[in-house]
Amino acid sequence: MSRKYLIAGNWKMNKTPADGADLAKEIASFVSKDESVEVVVCPTAVALDRVSQVIEDSAVKLGAQNLYPKASGAYTGEISAEMLRAVFAKYVILGHSERREYFAETDAFVNEKVKFALESNLIPILCIGETLEQREADETLEVNKTQLLGGMEGVSAEDAAKVVIAYEPVWAIGTGKTATPEMAQEVHAAIRSVLAEKYGSSVAEKIRILYGGSMKPANADDLLAQKDIDGGLIGGAALEAKSFCDLIESARKAD
């Protein structure tokens, strides 16, 4: 497969700067310089600088959990792309279901962020996914298509190839429930098909699609063996070095 596996840890609202630095140090010691798997850690905003310093000489890359789509200004509590670049962040998670649910982020607002991140030389990890109610109503593919096209509105084919998509069934986030490998693959394949319709198959084949619903060492091998699953956006299992490194190892084996 030409797409490089990506294992990204979303630490959410966990880890002080000191705790985050310790965790990042353990992960960095496990990741080789010529890593066949791309590894990203996404700490809280206050831990970004400390973690950045810890991973500076390693192959681990830094990601943020959010940004505001303006260069600067009176946006209390927000963080800008320039601030992220200043601590050498390369990736930024956008449109996570928790942002959509708790902070009422719409597809249009997420789209603003995606375009601003790309303009700012940051790689968006665009999250999409259905709720349990939507899955039970057989709306999974339509919901994901709507969120995907909404988030990518106005993004050129050249820029689209840089974006990472994370499929996160909302009902499987932090619940311990996981889509079966077959269920996950069905949605990943449908996402790639939508991308192919919009951008052409050659661009769609370059775009990495991560699974983001309770991937852990016990199920990672089977999920990563699927044709259209190119890694994971990891929540709970990213908060402990051993489990996160086990997931990196699973991606190495799948490569």
Rank of each mutant, 00 (worst) to 15 (best):
S201D: 13
V37E: 09
A157E: 07
M83D: 11
S243Q: 14
L149H: 06
E98C: 11
A104K: 15
E168K: 04
Y211P: 09
D255N: 15
T175I: 03
K25L: 09
A241H: 06
E142F: 00
M183S: 01
T44E: 12
L126G: 13
I191F: 06
Y199W: 03
S29Y: 01
A225R: 11
N144M: 01
T16E: 06
L48M: 09
E182N: 08
A251I: 14
V46K: 06
M183H: 08
L149S: 08
C127L: 00
S58R: 11
M13A: 09
E249S: 15
A225W: 03
S58Y: 08
V46I: 12
A21W: 01
K90I: 06
P217V: 09
I191H: 04
R50N: 09
V41W: 04
A204F: 04
I209N: 07
Y5H: 14
L141F: 13
M83L: 07
D19L: 09
P69K: 11
R100M: 10
Q147V: 02
A190F: 12
I55R: 06
G176R: 10
V164T: 15
N66M: 00
L23Y: 09
F244N: 14
E130M: 11
S214A: 09
T180N: 04
I125Q: 12
E38K: 14
